[in-house]
Nucleic acid binder design. Sequence first.
DNA 1: TACAAATCAAGAAAAAAATCACGATTTTTA
DNA 2: TAAAAATCGTGATTTTTTTCTTGATTTGTA
Lengths: 206, 206
Amino acid sequence: MSKNIPEKVSNRLTLYHSILAEYIEQGQEYISSPQIAQRLGIDDSQVRKDFKLLNNAGKCRVGYIVKELKDSIEKTLGFTKAKDAFIVGAGHLGLALAKYDNFNSYGLNILALFDNDPHKIDMQVNNKQIFHISKLPNLAQRLNVDIAILTVPRQYAQDVADFLIDSDIKYIWNFTPAVLVVPPHIKVWNENLIASFLQFACKEIV
Amino acid sequence: MSKNIPEKVSNRLTLYHSILAEYIEQGQEYISSPQIAQRLGIDDSQVRKDFKLLNNAGKCRVGYIVKELKDSIEKTLGFTKAKDAFIVGAGHLGLALAKYDNFNSYGLNILALFDNDPHKIDMQVNNKQIFHISKLPNLAQRLNVDIAILTVPRQYAQDVADFLIDSDIKYIWNFTPAVLVVPPHIKVWNENLIASFLQFACKEIV
DNA sequence: TACAAATCAAGAAAAAAATCACGATTTTTA
DNA sequence: TAAAAATCGTGATTTTTTTCTTGATTTGTA
């Protein structure tokens, strides 16, 4: 982190990471840039350029050491650094994310969920409790959590975001289609699934 | 569509679209590029350049007509063109997507879900039935569906993708972290939530 | 009406990203 | 051992994307 890696590059790094994980499963020790490039349909010098960013030298005629490369990517993208977060909105998407165990191995720990529906309060999802939203400010402070994953319905998104900001949440991973208005010190990452699909559809589906 | 709009641009277009929807709700007739730019923290000439791609002229000192702009974006991104799709994998994420009514208004119609878990077969989710995966080839052909939303566990992703391809599926929206190997005429769009988060974390959370 | 302010349009410049090209190195093979 | 092949590393080139700049247009106001 902190190295200011461009979005496109870190996007590719995660794809490389998946491929490397496969190679390790298969017991392969080395991997070459053309192998990866072909798999992803990109240029092989692109792959080498990206790896250079990781300060991970390859060997001519042989390639890169899979294990080392994978570790470098994990370090660079911050898998190794634990990050605690709350899910705000225990709807279907919120629950799906809560059950997504994989987050853990990527350094993201979901500690709890929050909702305002009395029926959901105190339920457990994947060993994580659902609390009433009113408990959030206190818990955020006590557990020192400043990341929120926002999965409430669109019409409540801004109000809930304002509430989160009042509760000292600093980072919002926004799964709602709302474009949040926030002060400059709050960072929002928009995960607009519809937008994502449209890009796909618009590019590929003629 | 087909106009080969860069990914970054279509990404911004969907953000503009959300803002335009708000303006319409509020009954605003006009919107200016600096207004949008400020909202998103980007350059206003960037916004104008993007709008120029839509062939949508603005008026000096006044701005753009909200309604027209919104329609242009919808036409350009293909909201208006109905696209039918299947969800393959009726796990939490699959169900969450099936219940996401909004897809409809963006031109994506989920017709049915597929799974191999006998307990899930024949259940209804949001008026969509869950079928056994073995029914997919037939239904795909009969309903003329060539888009699949893949939400199975990672370890089955490649096998299921192969099966889909055999069933004449052409477009796969891949929610699994697997990097799928497919023939060149099959288009895959990777929606790697973990990757997405890591980009956020890596950039913003120091 | 004249002037100021806001905004668009479009070309120029700058920055960023991707691709190309080629020398250097290592391994394999004849 | 020499030649061939595969691959890395990296500088040069090209392409794409973003930002800057300037001029024109419209609206509001003194």
